[in-house]
Design a protein around this nucleic acid. Structure first.
Lengths: 102, 102
DNA sequence: GTCGAACTTCGACGGTCGTCGTAGTACGGT
DNA sequence: ACCGTACTACGACGACCGTCGAAGTTCGAC
């Protein structure tokens, strides 16, 4: 839990990595949930039908792709969408994804 | 070559399938090329560093996801972006993807 | 300082996916 | 009719990925 929570800078975010990160049902669900919560949430509260270790893997994938920002808070990790960065780099992408019905 | 080139209807297009289709470098390159060519092109003319059979696989993936429309023309297949459908379902998504530098 | 909750790390396993080569089909031109 | 071009279908193979459980770390609370 001591690991340095590395986040890519805005100009290091790659569209290929972002799309790969979004291309998983569980991660897409996480992104949807974060979109409803500007301040961010602990992803552990979400019931996504996967174990904690799998959830860790997904959140890390999203973080390393530059989709989410994660900050420690107590024993939890608060994740939030990097909306400003994504909107600046790929205007419309996030809105388009979130506009999908269902 | 006789197979019926099935395309999903607009309301059958799923965001998960679209994102999975876009989450491959070769397919992303195809989409980029098609975006530059409103009328569509034969993907065989693109130099993507993969064999013809691999290219067939990628074009089919894009077609079945609803990203491209493919129509036979002689011995070729003309692929074109389903821009209207994608813009209607996921407004901004395609523009965001294409806005990515590089 | 002890406990529990939240999360991470590691290794393992199974399935999916991208890739290829070969063989085959469809079409146009000669 | 024949040939070449463009593409497809079918296995096969290797790599990657999502998943898990077990063990470990960190933090706050009592």
């Amino acid at each position: 839990m001591t690991t340095m929570l590395a986040h890519p800078e805005r100009d290091e975010i790659r569209i290929a990595a972002v799309l790969q990160a979004l291309a998983d049902p569980v991660r897409l669900e996480i992104v949807r949930a974060l979109a409803r919560c500007e301040e961010g949430i602990s992803c552990g509260v979400l019931d996504l039908g996967v174990t904690a270790s799998t959830l860790t893997h997904h959140v890390r994938t999203l973080r390393e792709a530059g989709v989410v920002h994660v900050r420690p808070q107590g024993t939890s990790r608060i994740s939030s969408l990097r909306r400003a960065d994504l909107d600046a780099l790929f205007p419309g992408l996030l809105d388009g994804v979130l506009a999908a019905r269902q």
